[in-house]
């Protein structure tokens, strides 16, 4: 199965790795509307990135579900973090809400002039978005966005383990 697919002038690339340690222009953090970093990736952002990220988030205050906001990435290798608040815990219309969240995260990156953006499996895992749904919606959304007029040249999907990786590999292989 391919680990990357070309869409117009852009690439979708699938990797297995450590999201918050990636040397990329920006990565997406699946946030809560109150923008608290919390545990998991939030803990890694706090530990590796330092306190300035939290301070910037506190100034922003919060976002609505489905929205995305960018902050600097402190001492992380990435330049920016896109904080996107998506659906969680089997709430109604997961697919529709995840699509909106994806679109807003991509637009937010575009507005910042970001050309390389990494995503985790959005909402899968702790937030209980079913992995097959997550993979299908994410690939569909990224494909649609990159098919349009965009400055984003590379979208990376960063799987935490083989379980995540396999689900995305199947969806990636299905791209025409």
């Amino acid at each position: 199965m391919p680990d990357s697919v070309k869409i117009n002038q852009s690439t979708i690339r699938l990797i297995k790795g450590d999201l918050t340690a990636l040397d990329v222009e920006a990565f997406v953090f699946y946030a809560r509307p109150d923008l608290a970093l919390g545990s998991g990736f939030g803990n890694a952002i706090s530990m590796r990135g330092g306190s300035t990220i939290k301070e910037e988030l506190e100034k922003i205050g919060g976002i609505k579900s489905g929205e995305a906001v960018a902050t600097a990435a402190g001492e992380l290798k990435a330049g920016y973090i896109i904080h996107a608040a998506g659906p969680a815990f089997h709430e109604e219309n997961i697919e529709g809400k995840l699509l909106i969240t994806m679109e807003n995260a991509l637009k937010c990156a575009e507005e910042k002039g970001i050309k390389q953006l990494a995503f985790p499996p959005m909402g899968a895992g702790f937030f209980a978005v079913p992995l097959p749904v997550c993979a299908k919606v994410m690939i569909e959304s990224i494909k649609r966005y990159l098919s349009g007029d965009t400055g984003i040249k590379e979208v990376i999907i960063c799987a935490a383990d083989n379980r995540d990786y396999k689900s995305f590999a199947v969806e990636l292989a299905a791209i025409d």
Binding site: G38, S39, G40, F41, A44, G125, F126, A160, D161
Partner: peptide
């Protein structure tokens, strides 16, 4: 749970 899901 979130730590174990995301950090491993």
């Amino acid at each position: 749970s979130k730590d174990q899901w995301e950090i491993g």
